[in-house]
Design a protein around this nucleic acid. Structure first.
Lengths: 186, 186
DNA sequence: TAGCAAAATTATCTTATGATAAATAATAGC
DNA sequence: GCTATTATTTATCATAAGATAATTTTGCTA
């Protein structure tokens, strides 16, 4: 996915502002299983996914909790690092070999203070993430595990092809054993 | 709670920008049980809570799902209306007589396009809401119902005094009967 | 491509929460 | 303040999901 397309789908800004933004973006690639962001670190960069799929998980003693999957076009960031420059909850792990666009938060913050279009682009970035997570919270409280699985499959059918079921189970808030039962009952 | 304090805790902006923002803010008051925002409407305003407590709920055929409580200083908005000018999921109901600061989204959007400080203030508003909801998602997946109740009580002890238990049960994703059991076991 | 490790499934048993109903307590309106 | 309504608690039974363990399948990698 092209960087222009990714930036535009967040919010349209004048060409000159987009150029300023892109001057601070570089391309990087990492292999499957690479840990891109770490929970015990203040992360300096955010990423946009050019190609590949990733998961964010909160590491715990016994079990990691997968709480997000990112596919092509989506933004990867440690919310706490990005917003408060504090250590976040999440590790982000690549589930496939990935190509990413990398953007330094420090540079982005400079742009936010210099360019009103980029400031509004950053506002939209946060607002759109907020909408996604809000609909997730509501569906979590509203639906049974089976219904959440069905909804995930119809909204993101490619996930089942690309992501180990144990991570999908964690995302749904159930055990892999329980997910296996649900899938069998279909 | 004073409007200056509420605006400042989101993001500090120059006095002139704050004046511009406040020129568009008026005070309103509504009684307990008033429905401030409706799920089937595109809402034109956002609110800040001067005094009182409210809940946001997604209305359903049989059961309403309470997914947020707002207390003094917090921002009330229909995310979908605010971000996309579309109908949202949520009703917002006042659980006490409330005093509110009202801000028209149309005016706010004008300011976002005119004043870079206000644009960045709006960015921080969304980012801070994002942090709150993210920590909620993680704790929902991580904790048992009893642990979520304990966490809610230690983070927001006033809730139990001010909010009927049936709404707290809904927020925790359990039935009032189940919450009653949990409380008894203490 | 053989062999090993990890993932997924299946089975059994346990447990937390749901559903329902009835009793008690709290609240609001007259 | 009294009464009707609503909220909360308690009890019983049903069920979805957890824990554990064994088995099968898949997928690496040497």
């Amino acid at each position: 996915m092209k960087i222009d397309e990714i930036l535009d789908q967040i919010y349209n800004i004048p060409e000159s502002s987009k150029v300023a933004l892109k001057e601070n973006i570089s391309e990087v690639a990492y292999p499957k299983n690479h840990i891109l962001l770490k929970a015990d670190k203040i992360e300096a960069n955010i990423y946009f996914i050019k190609k590949g799929i990733v998961r964010a998980f909160a590491p715990q003693k016994e079990k990691d909790i997968t709480f997000w999957f990112g596919e092509e076009g989506e933004t990867i960031l440690s919310m706490k690092s990005y917003v408060e420059r504090k250590k976040g909850y999440e590790n982000v792990e690549l589930l496939e070999d990935c190509e990413l666009y990398e953007l330094k938060v420090a540079h982005l913050n400079n742009l936010y203070n210099q360019d009103i279009h980029i400031a509004n682009w950053g506002r939209k970035l946060a607002e759109k993430e907020l909408l996604k997570i809000e609909s997730r919270v509501i569906s979590t409280e509203l639906l049974s595990a089976k219904e959440r699985y069905d909804a995930l499959m119809s909204n993101s059918p490619s996930l089942i092809q690309r992501v180990p079921l144990k991570y999908i189970a964690s995302y749904l808030g159930i055990t892999p054993v329980s997910l296996s039962r649900i899938r069998k009952e279909k």
